[in-house]
Design a protein around this nucleic acid. Structure first.
Length: 291
DNA sequence: CGAGGTACCTGACAGC
DNA sequence: TGCTGTCAGGTACCTC
């Protein structure tokens, strides 16, 4: 699933394509994907004729500011991604109208499609159906508990080292797990936590309380660097994630440890290891990242 | 409160 | 070929 760089890439792509467009209709073969309002029929009714103003994100949530003070929130979760293009229905299957990036097999799991007033469509492809869409009154969303419990944005200008230290605060537990907690810092998931820790030469299982000032500083820098590099490259597409035009992101060349078990560390040549804790895989170099 | 497990789902792939 | 098991980018919720 997309992490911060992939979500940011999606937002930037959408902002080039859909502002000023109006929703004409919505289709779904998995109505449960809409969590708010509870009834899909109501969702359909509510979103009709709403105009898209701009798209932004908070953590991994994508928010469409709509006319009349409404907001559409989409979370892509593990395998979801938003696409803009044109599809046609053939024997119950949506097929892209033109050959190209949208024909990529990972783009074929369309479960929610918004029809726009220019003939194009905004579609959510999601193999695992974990993604969600919610329609909010903008003010209600901004004041919601879930929205306000999200940690600071690591690419914000005001995300200072002090703020980073403050976010980690007196957290206990393994650093990788803490980095992935959305209430601590926004947007970091399994890939970029592993990648940042490799760059900072910190073992993923190191206890937060045992990190020295120097380690914290290099981790802070590593997080900002790896995330902004990934944004610049349009994110990671080794699996399901695709940009809004259906094409792949280019972070793959920079991937040092994630999903590289058994391959050589780009720094010291040692074999990358995979361990499991907190129900997730962690990848690291046992020689560069010691406990 | 923290840690750990489960739930939500389906597809890709490895191994037999 | 086809079956089985493992793994998957997230996060909410439950229990101990």
């Amino acid at each position: 699933m997309p992490e911060l760089p992939e979500v940011e890439t999606t937002v930037r792509g959408l902002n080039k394509k859909v502002p000023e467009r109006t929703f004409i209709d919505v289709w779904s073969d998995w109505e449960k994907i809409v969590k708010k309002p509870k009834s899909f029929a109501q969702f359909k009714k509510d979103i009709k004729n709403k105009k898209i103003k701009k798209i932004w994100r908070r953590a991994k949530n994508i928010i469409f500011d709509l006319s009349d003070g409404w907001s559409l929130l989409v979370h892509q979760k593990m395998t979801g991604h938003l696409l803009v293009g044109e599809w046609g229905l053939h024997n119950g299957q949506w097929k892209p109208k033109k050959e190209g990036p949208l024909s990529d097999p990972y783009n074929r799991f369309l479960h929610l499609i918004f029809f726009l007033d220019n003939g194009k469509m905004l579609a959510l492809s999601d193999a695992r159906k974990f993604a969600k869409a919610e329609l909010w009154k903008a003010e209600e969303l901004l004041n919601s508990k879930e929205f306000n419990s999200i940690g600071p944005e690591p690419l914000d200008k005001n995300f200072t080292f002090k703020k980073f230290e403050g976010a980690l605060g007196n957290k206990k537990g393994k650093i990788k797990q803490v980095l992935m907690n959305p209430e601590v810092i926004a947007g970091i998931g399994n890939i970029y936590s592993s990648e940042a820790l490799w760059r900072a030469r910190i073992h993923p299982e190191k206890n937060v309380a045992k990190l020295g000032e120097k380690e914290l500083k290099s981790l802070y820098e590593a997080i900002k660097k790896v995330l902004s590099l990934a944004v610049k490259l349009g994110g990671e597409s080794f699996s399901d994630y695709r940009k809004p035009d259906g094409s792949k992101g280019d972070f793959d060349t920079e991937r040092q440890v994630y999903k590289r078990e058994g391959q050589k560390c780009g720094r010291c040549g040692e074999k990358i290891k995979r361990i499991k804790f907190a129900g997730r895989s962690a990848f690291f170099c046992p020689s560069c990242q010691k406990l």
